[in-house]
Simulated scan of single mutants.
Amino acid sequence: MDSFATKVRTFDAFPKVDSQHSVRSQRGGFSTLMTIFAGLLIVWIEIGGFLGGYVDRQFIVDDEIRSDLSINVDMLIAMPCEFLHTNVRDLTKDRYLAGETLNFEGMNFFIPENFNVNNVNDAHDTPDLEEVMRESMRAEFRLEGARVNEGRPACHVFGSIPVNHVKGEFHITAKGVGYSDRSHVPIEALNFTHLIQEFSYGEFYPFINNPLDATGKVTEENLQAYRYHTKVVPTVYQKLGLVIDTNQYSLTESHHVYPYDQQKKPMGIPGIFFRYDFEPIKLTISEKRIPFVQFVAKLGTILGGLLILAGYLYRLYDKLLSILYGKKYVEKNTEKKTGGLLDKKDENLL
């Protein structure tokens, strides 16, 4: 039993150079310290990365069948509410009077300081996972179909519109302009200057940023038409068992001022038009962590590579010093005073 324990203590899977054949130097000690420091730094970074996980983004085919969803709207239009006509029509030729669920509140028109007005909305980024988790507070509009102070100069339009899950368009126009209506708004009274506080699809998360949020357009033309073309992508955020199923969209926009024809009638329909289409894919953004065995193997591979690299760099450094200053400079202060073969021979003689 004692012999077995002795063999185990003396067993070395990685044989080292005998101390009597090794020479210590200041350069070697400094190289060892730098290698140990780099190794500890790598271990610290890798452990932090393992504990923190990583964000995985995957596009997959959207195999979920959805029959409907909601369009969430919160905007201010520089016309009285009694002038506005809201409608939804889609690919199935289905029409829905959005005014039945939207709320119309008359008020004065104003432009907040933080709004992006009359600029192209071309900076679209997918919200980060941490940002969405912080802002994922679901809400609903408490009112539906309310109409207050409709004669005021501007109209605050807000609410959720249920629509079919097919290509369609939600538009805001003036009564009697382009559509038959009992009332008719004079051309000179048209003004489709607008500010968009919220425009999103699906469940209403008021604090998640969307491309059209806090944007607006100001015009002095009566026959101005604004068109927003959106491509909607279902997006699922997952972290620590919490799942947020929402939608994001890409945006292209155009605007046009219609001229008059020979009968002094508009050659188009002015208004604000939101066209939407749905992509057949789904984006999944989730936080994942590599398996522990894989983490250990990765860490061992990196540290092994670091040791090999340190050895090559040390030899390269010695080679450069030998070329620049000569071999004697490199070997200076590295002679071993004791422990050589001659010392052992002298000890045997004594």
Rank of each mutant, 00 (worst) to 15 (best):
288 K>P: 00
138 R>Y: 08
96 Y>D: 10
323 I>V: 14
105 E>Y: 07
124 H>L: 14
229 H>Q: 07
316 L>S: 09
264 K>D: 05
291 P>I: 02
168 G>R: 00
146 A>K: 14
239 K>M: 12
310 A>Q: 02
71 I>M: 12
128 D>K: 09
336 K>H: 05
212 L>V: 09
114 N>S: 15
230 T>Q: 11
122 D>G: 06
72 N>T: 12
348 N>P: 00
307 L>G: 10
149 N>Q: 12
236 V>Q: 07
346 D>T: 12
15 P>T: 06
87 N>D: 09
33 L>T: 08
253 E>W: 05
225 A>E: 04
227 R>Q: 10
113 E>P: 07
238 Q>F: 05
326 G>L: 11
79 M>Q: 10
247 N>H: 14
12 D>H: 15
235 T>C: 08
269 I>H: 00
241 G>V: 09
266 P>D: 04
179 Y>G: 01
144 E>Y: 07
251 L>I: 08
176 G>N: 06
97 L>H: 15
96 Y>G: 03
122 D>N: 15
211 P>V: 02
221 E>V: 02
207 F>G: 00
317 Y>A: 11
183 S>L: 10
200 S>N: 04
162 P>R: 06
40 L>K: 01
112 P>W: 12
209 N>P: 04
54 Y>R: 12
128 D>E: 10
318 D>Q: 15
167 K>A: 08
47 I>A: 05
54 Y>L: 06
103 N>Y: 07
311 G>K: 12
158 F>D: 02
